[in-house]
């Protein structure tokens, strides 16, 4: 796409800061649920993401294909998650394993401690317990959390350099259900806010970024689309458009029309 504004200052963005790390892209994408690894790879590239999330699992000796052969480790930072962990202990142990995996080149970890299988909502108590341990261990902890400003502040105080409230349940595609809470979280904490889970399509991504959040993490909405690679590009553009719109400062909404054409010099 030709973009004449591409090389000038209008697009200047200081990037997404997570602890000691800075990324140009404000979109993080997951690697789960793709039809195959080639589509996963093409989608990740199309999304422009620099961080991709992965799980930590027992090796499947019968697997026909190796996921790693589709991931360029010079291009992507791998972010391990704790999906499926229901206790702080399991989440901490899972992430401790990542220290032995050389594919992880940073200490960034996505911490999720699930409290309920149906909603996949996090367990706040276990989340805080795990976050405290992991911060002490020296990890850069990125916690997946409810859209709760009080919890966000607690996680910031523990030492999480970012908070990741959900927009709506994981994989639901419901979009942002409580934009006001996300705005309050953004005003409550001074660390970056990344909305994690629930974005369904590019307009959701755009609207979320327009709220002023610092980034978005998306998996299902891309992987589950009929054409994941196209959706990945749509999400990239949605995130960029939303960020630019936020930085631009939108006009206030008015009840009545306000002519955009001048009245002076009217002929008839």
């Amino acid at each position: 796409m030709n973009n004449d504004a591409g090389n000038n200052n209008y697009l200047m963005d200081d990037g997404l800061k997570i602890g000691k790390y800075t990324f140009k892209s404000r979109l993080i994408v997951g690697t789960g649920k793709y039809p195959d690894f080639q589509i996963m790879k093409d989608s990740a590239i199309a999304s422009g993401a620099e961080i991709i999330t992965v799980a930590v699992r027992r090796i499947d000796f019968n697997a026909k294909d190796n996921m790693l052969s589709y991931i360029d480790l010079d291009r992507f930072t791998l972010l391990p998650n704790t999906a499926g962990c229901y206790t702080a202990e399991d989440a901490v142990n899972t992430l401790m394993l990542t220290r032995e995996l050389e594919v992880f080149k940073t200490d960034l970890v996505k911490l999720e401690v699930i409290g309920d299988a149906k909603t996949l909502y996090p367990d706040n108590e276990e989340l805080i317990k795990a976050a405290k341990i992991l911060v002490k261990e020296g990890f850069t902890v990125m916690p997946y959390m409810m859209d709760d400003p009080v919890l966000a502040k607690k996680l910031e105080d523990i030492g999480c350099p970012v908070v990741m409230p959900l927009a709506s349940p994981i994989g639901s595609g419901l979009g942002i259900r409580n934009p006001y809470n996300i705005k309050i979280i953004k005003e409550t904490v001074s660390v970056p806010v990344i909305v994690d889970a629930g974005v369904g399509t590019a307009s959701d991504a755009c609207k979320t970024m327009e709220l002023g959040v610092d980034g978005i993490l998306i998996n299902t909405a891309i992987a589950g689309a009929n054409n994941p690679v196209k959706m990945a590009l749509a999400m990239k553009q949605g995130v960029e458009a939303g960020r630019l719109a936020y930085l631009s400062g939108r006009i206030p909404m008015k009840l009545y029309a306000q002519a955009s054409t001048q009245m002076e010099g009217i002929v008839f």
Binding site: G30, T31, T53, A83
Partner: peptide, 8 residues
């Protein structure tokens, strides 16, 4: 024996 796997 553990490695990476697809995940979000």
């Amino acid at each position: 024996l553990v490695s990476i796997a697809p995940g979000g």
